[in-house]
Computed example of a mutant assay.
Amino acid sequence: MDLYEYQAKELFGRHGIPVPAGAIATTPARAGEIAAELDAPVVIKAQVKTGGRGKAGGIRPAAGPAAAATEADRVIGMDIKGHIARRVLVEAATVPFEEYYAAFLVDRAEGTFLAMVSAQGGMEIEELAATDPDAIVRLPIDPATGVDADTARLLAAKAGLPEQAAGVLEQLWRVLVEEDALLVEVNPLICTTDQRIVALDGKVTLDDNAAFRHSWEDYEESTDSLEDRAKAKGLNYVKLDGTVGVIGNGAGLVMSTLDVVAGAGADPANFLDIGGGASAKVMADGLEIILADPDVRSVLVNVFGGITACDAVANGIVTALELLGERGHGRPIVVRLDGNNAEVGRRILSDARHPAVRQVSTMDGAAETAARLAAGA
């Protein structure tokens, strides 16, 4: 379970990790009140479970209460990569002297824990790893010994962080262990002009398998993100950054489809596996989720009939488009059917003559068509 930034910082605070003063607002008026209570310049931060908030305009400075209310009004309701900002964190503005990166996570490939620390914080860790991999100190952590004061000092020294950062690194490790987290990340972890170490941001992923040991009810809430809506419908969905929506039956086929779409010169907008039982309801739910993403310009349905025959899939698509009504007409839907009863399924789609549907017989051809349509060609 991923936490919002404000929830991560609540955990940090309980473990003695310094964070800026702030509070949550769900209305512009409340944001202004919080800014007045803090009696200082503030930052309005969209609370969504995705990165890229700053680039999307979801993090805004405000000099006082009136400006805080204005900026909160701009941010609340903002769509950031399919996540709707229903609340904002109104936080005292903190000027960093230096910015660092620190994370502890479960390294599944090696079957252990991993510490990642860098003196170059503030940028996305993937970008830093690509441009300057030597800037990141990676240290495997023995679960039996963990991170004590000596290990924390070693990490800080190797990464070029000031000595006082070691204490915060040790506390971040305690968050990971005591809260049964899979990931604890701070980017940026800052040193202020008066030499205080402060977690300016926070990302925490809790292990759902450990829920019985904790009281996490406060963190479990319904949201309107596409991932949450898909999860509620029993769909395996992951939002990506592209323009071609992808639906397939089976994780392996969907992964292959993503690769083929990328090879056709387009970026996939999502991963959506409808599984083996592609009923009309499942197909309708899948199309509804994908078409709710404003970034999607075309949809590629790639199905290999096996246990569920292609004629059942085709009937599901036709019924789904009937259920969606006008929502199913706006963007082209490219369909590739193969396998059990593929010819019957193709005939069903042809007879339906839905204006949004284009049939292509091969996966490569379907991907190329979807990519071309997404580009407006």
Rank of each mutant, 00 (worst) to 15 (best):
L183G: 03
G265L: 07
G160V: 00
T70P: 01
D364T: 10
N340Q: 07
V43K: 01
M123A: 12
I17F: 08
T223C: 14
A56R: 02
L154A: 12
D107W: 04
L128V: 15
A35V: 04
V95Y: 09
E217K: 15
I125Q: 09
L154F: 03
D241P: 07
R331P: 13
D148C: 01
E124F: 04
H83L: 01
V357H: 13
T131P: 12
V19L: 04
A262Y: 09
G328T: 02
S350G: 15
Y100A: 07
V90H: 11
A68S: 06
I44V: 14
I125K: 07
H15A: 00
E179M: 04
L114V: 05
H214S: 05
G286Y: 05
R297N: 08
I247E: 00
I76F: 08
V42D: 00
L155A: 01
L3P: 11
E179N: 02
G22R: 02
I290W: 09
P28T: 01
D73L: 00
I307S: 02
E37G: 06
M78W: 08
Q171E: 11
Y237A: 00
P188S: 03
D148L: 06
G32H: 11
G111H: 10
F97K: 13
A371M: 12
I290V: 15
P18G: 08
G316R: 10
A149Q: 14
A93I: 09
V303N: 03
E368N: 03
A284S: 09
D241S: 11
E326S: 13
Y4T: 13
E10M: 06
I125W: 02
A56N: 05
T193S: 11
T112R: 15
D224N: 14
M255Q: 10
L89D: 11
V282E: 01
K231Y: 05
C310W: 00
V186R: 05
G328N: 03
A284N: 00
G58W: 00
D293Y: 08
A66D: 13
A199M: 07
S279A: 04
T243C: 09
G16V: 03
V204I: 15
M363P: 11
V204N: 13
E170F: 00
V360N: 12
I348Y: 10
I59S: 01
D73W: 01
L349R: 11
A109R: 12
A342M: 01
G376S: 03
D338I: 02
P294C: 09
Q47S: 05
D107P: 06
N270F: 04
A199N: 02
G13Q: 14
L206C: 13
L291K: 11
R347E: 15
L183W: 06
M1F: 08
A56C: 08
D73S: 13
T27M: 10
V246R: 00
G167Q: 02
G252P: 15
L176A: 02
L349S: 07
A199T: 05
D194G: 06
A165G: 10
S350R: 15
K231G: 10
I247D: 00
P140K: 14
D273H: 04
V204E: 11
A157R: 15
A312R: 12
A356N: 09
V260M: 10
G111L: 04
N302I: 13
A67L: 05
G250I: 06
D142I: 09
L373H: 07
M255I: 12
K203P: 11
E99H: 07
N209P: 12
A149R: 14
R196E: 12
W216Y: 08
A29C: 01
A280Y: 01
N270D: 03
M78G: 13
V260K: 06
G325W: 06
S118L: 01
G245S: 10
